[in-house]
Design a protein around this nucleic acid. Structure first.
Lengths: 69, 69
DNA sequence: TCATAAAGTATAGTACACTTTACATTATTT
DNA sequence: AAATAATGTAAAGTGTACTATACTTTATGA
């Protein structure tokens, strides 16, 4: 699964720490999401999408591998 | 967090088991989601929304309590 | 070039999404 | 009323999202 977190974040010149604070997770969580270490929970996905004013589907790119959970 | 899973499912006269099979989880997972025992993962949310042809945001209703993850 | 900000790595711990199996209750149909 | 379908409950196990802390590397800018 891919995300546009880093892309949107950089476009808006926001640091990982600022985003982390905004959605109330640790900086490590943002790093891990951006680097594909794991997938966001539904609520976190929603908060990040909301923060950037886009839908979850626009922020997170589901691919065929996501047949598994 | 609320969901419209049961609502959409009943509208289309689909059983929990049929939905479970369609999105490749167990029947217990569907029951638990419908009864608010826990929240879907992002990928499962996506698969359920896709199955019903709606967006994740339309299928899952985020409320203020969802400040936490 | 030196300081500092930003991004990254590592690791141990906790909570919970999801599975599996088995049994119980409630609806639906004949 | 009896059979069967559908929904529900319980409980133990696994994987992983996220935290916390501490340290390292890479960018940015005076």
């Amino acid at each position: 699964m891919q995300t546009r977190i880093a892309q949107y974040r950089k476009e808006r010149k926001i640091t990982q720490e600022e985003l982390a604070d905004a959605v109330n997770v640790t900086r490590q969580t943002i790093i891990s999401l951006e680097n594909g270490k794991y997938k966001a929970s539904l609520v976190l996905a929603h908060k990040i999408a909301q923060f950037f004013g886009v839908t979850i589907e626009e922020m997170f790119i589901f691919d065929r591998e996501d047949e598994n959970l």
